[in-house]
Amino acid sequence: MDIFLQQIINGLVQGSIYALVALGYTMVYGIMGLINFAHGEVVMIGTLVTITVAGSLIKAGMPVAVAGFAGLMAAVLVCMALGWALERVAYRPLRNAPRLTPLITAIGMSIVLQNLAMMIWGRNYLTFPALLPKMDFEFAGANFTMIQIIIVLVSAATMGGLLLLVYRTKLGMAMRATAQNPAVASLMGVNINRVIAAAFVIGSALGAVAGVMVGTYYEIAHYQMGFMLGLKAFTAAVLGGIGNLAGAMLGGILLGIIEALGAGYIGDLTGGFLGSHYQDIFAFVVLIVVLMFKPSGLFGEKTGDRA
């Protein structure tokens, strides 16, 4: 039982990370129906900026808490600027282009950002400075750490904040209007360009937060770390029904737990025929099964044909 509990904790934390990244995908998708493939790279840049800023401040003798906060702020600012620039330069001109065009642009941007990061931060794996005091807990035979609790709390709080933003503020209303029908929204006096830019900036800020969380948790970073993470998070977003904030959160956590339990138990269940080498498959198999019965994800609204 303690092992089962431990696996649930593992999955919950991993899932919260997926969820945090997935929120960024879903935020952008919900408003303009665009898969921002480069979102994983934004997360990566967030992590690497934090390493540089926090690392050099700690070296300069600043207290870890201050340096960590400064690192986080720097990452958020850089990523917001990056998100804004991405939207302005790469995506806005393509708003009326054929469906696949922005997707290819996003892939191109993803390659560009990865290689830029490699030029700036080098090819080696970097260590993330320890920003939080190490605290280990034990509960019913399962081990967990301070940072794991923080990750779960932060992603829950982020989702809560986003829901408030979307449903309780004027900007949120404008966002929902744009998502419904951009043309009509603009007739109603909504500045679509500003709303979409805001979605990108907010999504990227979330990416920066996710990047700092990932960095603090695993304590390593690399210029290619964003790709797999982005892919998993995207899967999570689709699983939950892309465009739906709560769906992204639940999809992420579900995916994390499925992976952990799958890796932990599939070997015993199949008599050793399948093992943890199929860990990456579980996510996709569940996704396919869910989509077969609910073609727009667990919590997604029915979307029109956008292809």
Partner: peptide, 18 residues
């Protein structure tokens, strides 16, 4: 068959990985 657009993209992506 029932899936469209981005949903189809992610499922086919998953299939390739599988």
């Amino acid at each position: 068959l029932k899936l469209r657009g981005d949903y189809l993209a992610i499922v086919t992506l998953g299939f390739g990985e599988i």
